[in-house]
Amino acid sequence: MKTIDIIVPCYNEGENIDMFFYETQGVISSITGYSFRYIFIDDGSCDDTLEKIKGLDNHVKIKYISFSRNFGKEAAMYAGLRASRGDYAVIIDADLQHPPGLMAEMIETIEETGCDSCAARRVSRKGEPRLRSLFARAFYRIMNRYSDIEILDGAVDFRMMNRKMVRAIVSMPENQRFSKGIFAWVGFDTRWIEFENVKRISGESKWSVWSLTKYAIDGFIDFAASPLKFVGVFGSVTAIGSVLYLVIEILKTLIMGKDIPGYASTICLILFFGGLITTVLSVMGEYIGRMYMETKGRPIYIEKESNIDED
């Protein structure tokens, strides 16, 4: 009998744990030939998420890892994959925005096609704030154009993977993670299942505009060297333009005589080049800062409590 680990990252999801478990149990109880195990990751929740997890039906395999603080969903997903031992691992959110019913279709797709992964993709953003939708679409367009990987618009973290792909992902212990990019970078044959956007059953999204912006920047920098290339090209073009401007001014002086110095043009040039230098240093500093954080060798997460090693 094949085994499947259901990895559930949780951050302040106490209101949703029971409903999620009820819905998911209804799905997996109708799937025969597979043994399921839950791995809940409590990402430093401030509510009763951990207590809710401990109180779930003990007739099924319920495992959990509780972090010492909030390390983020990326760390939670990595912890779950690292603790996984099943033939397959599926990552799913606890707020039911990832329909548990799709797991049956994922299993069927993997078994019929022999693919390594089956992932979910939203085909609509109905119910999502308009600004967030525009931001997300712009991110995918920029990411796919300027990075070395391709991420489908609407791709979510909800996916089922075989053991080979899980091992490949866990073998990348980088501290600043962007899982959507990592899933694409490791390769493997992935099939997609489309679904309509689903609202949270309760509570509010933990993703603010600022956190989404930071997440997008992290993903772009982690998988693209384009900003550095752009800065280099822009700097070269600016330098060439400055030389041409100097030649023109020399010729102009030789032909027409000395011109009256311009205060406004001088200030504009100073501000322009000052801003350019600051931008270049900022972009380079961002990459150097990430290198510095990675060289520290800090753990991706710290466990406070877990029952993974218990029989």
Rank of each mutant, 00 (worst) to 15 (best):
T49R: 02
T49A: 06
L50H: 00
L50G: 01
E51P: 04
K52H: 08
I53Q: 04
K54A: 09
K54F: 09
D57P: 02
D57R: 09
N58D: 15
H59L: 12
H59S: 14
V60C: 08
V60P: 03
I62G: 03
I62R: 05
K63Q: 11
I65Q: 07
I65P: 02
S66Q: 10
F67E: 05
S68I: 11
F71N: 01
G72M: 10
A75G: 03
R82Y: 08
A83R: 06
R85H: 13
R85Y: 11
G86S: 12
G86W: 04
A89G: 10
A89T: 03
A89V: 02
V90N: 02
I92V: 15
L96E: 03
H98A: 15
P99I: 14
P100K: 08
L102C: 05
A104S: 14
A104K: 14
A104H: 12
M106I: 00
I107A: 01
E108F: 09
T109P: 00
T109L: 15
I110Y: 00
G114S: 05
G114R: 07
S117G: 06
S117E: 12
C118R: 05
A119L: 13
A120R: 01
A120K: 05
R122I: 02
V123E: 11
V123Y: 11
S124L: 06
R125T: 10
K126H: 10
K126F: 10
G127E: 00
E128P: 02
E128C: 11
R130H: 12
R132F: 04
S133D: 14
L134G: 09
L134Y: 12
A136H: 07
R137P: 01
R137M: 08
R137Q: 07
A138E: 08
Y140R: 13
R141K: 14
R141G: 01
M143W: 06
M143G: 00
M143Q: 12
R145F: 14
R145Y: 14
R145N: 12
R145L: 15
R145V: 10
Y146F: 15
Y146S: 02
D148R: 13
I149S: 01
